[in-house]
Amino acid sequence: MPSRHDRREPVMDRRGFLIRTATTCALAAGAGLWGFLSYSREPLRRRAERVFTFKDYRVADAAAYPGLVVVHGRDVEKMARAAVERLGGISRFVSPGERVLIKPNAGWDRQPELAANTNPALVQAVVRLCLEAGAAEVWVTDVTINDPYRCFARSGIESAVRKAGGEVKFTTEGDFLLTDLGGEVLRVWPVSRFYHEVDRVINVPVVKHHSLSRCTIAMKNWYGVLGGRRNRLHQEIDVSIADLAAAIRPTLTIVDATRVLKRNGPTGGSPSDVSREDTIVAGLDEVALDSYSLRFLELKVEEVPFIRAAEERGLGVSDWRRLNHVEITV
């Protein structure tokens, strides 16, 4: 009985020989080609990552409208509406079909009463206004310091935005795109990708004490677009703030001074750190808005170097009185 070890290789015919030879040569040539094509002096293949730049989100300046609107009152929604009305109405800033991003300060896992984050009622009002203007989508985002889910939940902003019909965008590690800020100290940094996917950006900061920059209002709020180890920025905080303000030019800025964190900022943590000011300040010039809002923290322009730095770059005027300004109570 034949064993399975007795099986023989068939004798090769011409056709078989040619196929065999061709296959072997092709494999050998392929190996050579692979070596030739992939030879490199670099240990790793580097793919140049695309570097983005910010769009200009601004609308044309119009002398017909005031440059700075200060609104006092208790009903935040009414105050926001009045402020935007005086500035020419929301349709001046948002056209139908546009995608709008709202940037509150939502950096901390803190309740609204502690004033570490923007008042959720103001964010809600702005989302509503944008949707009334016909915005296709309204996104609210921030790169938070504490856990993002906790920050947006605890600050009340998530539920406020949902109620108004907007969408909260949480930023994960994969949501950053390299962006050239073209600044003095800030050049290419990872930036939340949502900024590159919208048409309009509305800055809705809160007025807070900060021990190094002295205050965090509109311009300092742009720290919250950056990823990476942004705590290195504090080494040149005034230049960094001016760099960011020069790189991102928002459509509109509405400063929340309804509750102001007077000390122990930017985290706060105690109601005794908070003072009720019941004011919002709206405008297009972040430098003027910042310098106006210093009054809530008993500061002067001279004490806050980043305002001067921003003014020297032509980002706005620190003497807000030079602007056409309106003060109303609703």
């Binding site: 900060h210 190094l212 504090h234 080494q235 905080i237 122990n264 985290t267 943590g269 005794s272």
Partner: peptide, 26 residues
Amino acid sequence: CLPWAMNIECIVCEEVCPTSPKAIWL
């Protein structure tokens, strides 16, 4: 520490300290 060892401005620890008043002071 940047200020202590290199005389470079940095207050990040104070900024993020969550207690009120802050345990880290300048």
